[in-house]
């Protein structure tokens, strides 16, 4: 109220509006980027996967396509422990050799396997699905829960990590919405692992972040008490 303190002239109105609009847009963009970045970095830090579709190279190329699709082997043929205990278990070299002593001559990958077997060595696979130490995931309980359940196909989308779609795909190609399906024991694996039979290199299809687990648990009336998985 003291004259003489301020000597500022009034700016043109359209300039003011432009500044205001630019300012607000800039702020919103900044806020959104900051939020997304925070969320992503924080959720990435100790989680198994950041971006879906990451299929690591393995020391020996193991095509699930051939073994599952063409030969029709069941998952439990190699991952024997999956119906018995917490871990699905990686098959021993001996198990591979029960077939490959005879089969597969001439393939470089199988020669690698035979070499390892001859040296009585172990194969160091690159882990694809990893749960952090503070998570107890029991394969057996999940397989038991899902095998033999019936469900109605509700929606079919393109995303591979939609639980109902993967189930439907496994059970019956081209299932229709509204159709009722039974899940076979071996079909349960693909609920989380995707259709491994079609994978040349195994990749992780679900995020396997905690939200993923919790959503599924809620959907299926499974316990969501923390001690179910964390102890």
């Amino acid at each position: 109220m003291i004259p003489g303190d301020f000597q500022f002239s009034k700016p043109p109105k359209n300039k003011l509006i432009l500044l205001g609009v630019l300012g607000s847009i800039g702020f919103i963009v900044f806020a959104v980027i900051a939020l997304i970045a925070t969320f992503h970095i924080s959720s990435w830090i100790d989680k198994p996967i950041v971006f879906a579709g990451e299929a690591p190279d393995q020391p020996i190329e193991f095509p699930h396509t051939i073994h599952v699709q063409e030969l029709g082997l069941d998952c439990t043929f190699c991952h024997t422990n999956v119906t018995k205990g917490a871990s699905a278990s990686i098959p021993a070299v001996n198990l591979c050799m029960s077939c490959h002593t005879q089969l597969g001559d001439g393939s470089t990958e199988i020669e690698k396997l035979r070499e390892i077997h001859a040296k009585k060595d172990v194969i160091q696979w690159t882990r694809v699905h990893r749960m952090p130490d503070h998570v107890r995931f029991i394969h057996e309980a999940h397989v038991k829960r899902f095998s033999g359940t019936r469900l109605v196909v509700e929606k079919i989308t393109d995303s591979t990590n939609q639980i109902r779609l993967t189930e439907a795909k496994t059970i019956k190609a081209g299932a229709k919405i509204g159709e009722t399906l039974d899940i076979a024991a071996s079909g349960t694996c693909s609920i989380c692992h995707g259709d491994v039979s079609k994978m040349h290199k195994v990749e992780q299809v679900r995020t396997l972040k905690m939200s993923d687990c919790v959503d599924c648990h809620r959907e299926n009336d499974a316990p969501t008490d923390c001690t179910t998985c964390h102890y």
Binding site: P132, H134, V135, D225, C226, T227, H230, Y231
Partner: peptide, 15 residues
Amino acid sequence: TYHNDQGLNVQVYNR
């Protein structure tokens, strides 16, 4: 830390 339905006082380390 919270009380679960089995009367346990649970400590969730990762939380």
